[in-house]
Design a protein around this nucleic acid. Structure first.
Length: 203
DNA sequence: CTGATGATGTTCT
DNA sequence: GAACATCATCAGA
């Protein structure tokens, strides 16, 4: 079941937490890639210097103003793309960064996208490395900036499917990664991941 | 296994 | 001109 608008237009932190164990599906022509979301981070506009849009929107972040469900993709360090899903109602600014997924379907395609060589007797280390980071799973999926502004509630190429409900004991909440520059906000516990999942980027 | 370092170019000031 | 929500690679233990 594809998640509907009601899921994404809620509070950003709730959306981030509830996206765990959901499935991100990307259909590129005949190829279907499916992966379970195992790690997320919430970014909220108010009182969060860690968010790109803390000081208001720019050309890069304009999509954040839209209703939850739209996709915010941006380039980081000149070479990598990071994938966010906008949350909250239109006019309220919040977004959820997807940091890691666990491959479910299309693993061979992911492997080719990441390592540029055929899927043949892969090392366990290589499989983990496919998707255990925010830029890594974007590369594995083959996602490009063409998806900027797409809507996961209605877009035919990409959507999020419901998954088994996760018990609270399996959810770990911690500080976000690599935002020490944010004087105010860096210590907020806005990162969520599934306990004991090998694809989580960092413990 | 750990920690350090360089790559690389868009975005914002 | 500086900063940057990262990754791959290398040295050392």
């Amino acid at each position: 079941m594809r998640l509907t608008r009601e899921f994404f237009e809620r509070n950003t932190v709730l959306v981030a937490r509830d996206l765990l164990n959901k499935v991100l599906v990307y259909k590129d022509g005949d190829t279907v890639i499916r992966g379970k979301i195992v790690e997320t981070e919430a970014y909220i506009g108010a009182k969060d210097q860690g968010a790109h849009f803390h000081k208001g929107l720019t050309e890069r972040t304009r999509i954040i103003d839209e209703v939850g469900g739209h996709i915010y993709i941006y380039t980081i360090y000149g070479m990598y793309l990071l994938f966010n899903i906008v949350a909250e109602e239109k006019g309220t600014h919040g977004a959820v960064l997807l940091r890691a997924v666990e491959p479910l379907e299309g693993v061979e395609k992911m492997y080719l996208n990441r390592y540029k060589k055929p899927y043949d007797n892969p090392q366990k280390r290589e499989i983990i490395g496919l998707t255990n980071g925010p830029a890594k799973f974007v590369m594995a999926y083959g996602i490009t900036k063409e998806l900027y502004g797409a809507d996961v509630v209605t877009d035919p190429r990409i959507w999020v499917e419901d998954g088994p409900k996760l018990s609270n004991e399996d959810i770990v909440r911690s500080k976000r990664i690599n935002i020490d520059y944010a004087e105010m906000g860096k210590d907020y516990l806005l990162r969520f991941y599934i306990k004991a999942n090998p694809f989580v980027s960092k413990k």
